[in-house]
Simulated assay, not measured.
Amino acid sequence: MKQTIFWAGDSTVKQNDFTSFPQTGIGQGLSLYLKKGVQIKNYAQNGRSTRSFIAEGRLQAVEKNIKEDDFLLIQFGHNDEKPDEERHTEPFTTFQENLKQYIKVAIDHKAHPVLITPLYRRLFKEDGQLVDDTHLDYPDAMIALGKELKVPVIDLCSISKDLIQKTGDEKSRKWFMHLEPTEYPNYPEGKIDNTHLRYDGAVAFAGIIAKELRKLGGRYADLLLPIDGEKEDSSFLID
């Protein structure tokens, strides 16, 4: 039976189509790192927080389809900090309480939850350093919850911050939606967006997730294509 990775999250991991091209979600990029026998079902949607995702029945849809030995990747934080009542949560109370519901869905179905902190925003100051704490206390709250419940956490926030800082202001633009006027038909006036990704960015940051899954070992590493020196388990690829 094929294993499936379910995504619950926001626009940074969403499965995009031609209407928003070249915007590409990390969920799309992750598919390049997975063995043939692993499927992705991406329920992420633009602008959703842990709260609005549940309110709209999206977590319920995941629950109807997830099965034993599947994986639920849970990535939120960008929109939980928004002030509107439909989305806002507080990091160490309602945000964590909502995340517990996602984790419960996975565990109740004998699937495997993984918490993923939000992608860092590409916001540079005049001195060439990134703006601090673009996601406030939400990443820390997610990490703390993972430790409390013994659920794996991939700290994409801090790892992506380090990578963006190392790459620098100019070179890191290629990963994000920095578009010239008339460059793409969907954005005739161009765009400067330091949150959402182009294809290269989705692949780069999905690579971080793949690397961290490999570090977790066992069932998590078994999802991934082999790297140099590893042998692929051909039995896993039988359709």
Rank of each mutant, 00 (worst) to 15 (best):
residue 133 D to N: 15
residue 133 D to R: 15
residue 133 D to P: 02
residue 133 D to V: 03
residue 135 H to M: 14
residue 135 H to T: 02
residue 135 H to E: 11
residue 136 L to Q: 15
residue 137 D to W: 02
residue 138 Y to P: 14
residue 138 Y to T: 11
residue 138 Y to R: 13
residue 140 D to I: 00
residue 141 A to R: 05
residue 141 A to T: 06
residue 142 M to W: 01
residue 145 L to D: 07
residue 145 L to V: 05
residue 145 L to Q: 09
residue 147 K to F: 00
residue 148 E to C: 04
residue 148 E to M: 09
residue 148 E to Y: 01
residue 149 L to M: 15
residue 150 K to G: 05
residue 150 K to R: 13
residue 151 V to T: 14
residue 152 P to G: 10
residue 154 I to F: 07
residue 154 I to C: 07
residue 156 L to F: 04
residue 157 C to A: 10
residue 158 S to V: 03
residue 159 I to M: 13
residue 159 I to W: 04
residue 160 S to G: 07
residue 161 K to G: 03
residue 161 K to Q: 13
residue 162 D to W: 00
residue 164 I to M: 12
residue 164 I to W: 05
residue 165 Q to H: 10
residue 166 K to A: 15
residue 171 K to E: 15
residue 173 R to C: 07
residue 174 K to R: 14
residue 175 W to G: 00
residue 175 W to N: 01
residue 176 F to C: 02
residue 176 F to W: 10
residue 178 H to F: 15
residue 179 L to G: 05
residue 179 L to P: 10
residue 180 E to W: 00
residue 181 P to I: 00
residue 181 P to M: 00
residue 183 E to S: 08
residue 183 E to M: 03
residue 185 P to C: 02
residue 185 P to Y: 00
residue 186 N to F: 01
residue 187 Y to T: 09
residue 189 E to K: 14
residue 190 G to C: 07
residue 191 K to N: 08
residue 191 K to V: 01
residue 192 I to R: 13
residue 193 D to W: 03
residue 194 N to W: 04
residue 195 T to P: 06
residue 196 H to K: 08
residue 196 H to W: 07
residue 196 H to M: 09
residue 197 L to F: 10
residue 200 D to L: 14
residue 200 D to H: 08
residue 201 G to F: 09
residue 203 V to M: 10
residue 203 V to D: 08
residue 206 A to L: 09
residue 209 I to T: 02
residue 210 A to Q: 06
residue 210 A to Y: 08
residue 211 K to F: 07
residue 211 K to M: 10
residue 212 E to F: 07
residue 212 E to Y: 08
residue 212 E to S: 03
residue 213 L to W: 10
residue 213 L to N: 12
residue 213 L to P: 14
residue 214 R to Q: 09
residue 214 R to C: 02
residue 214 R to L: 06
residue 215 K to M: 06
residue 215 K to I: 05
residue 218 G to I: 05
residue 218 G to A: 11
residue 219 R to L: 12
residue 219 R to V: 11
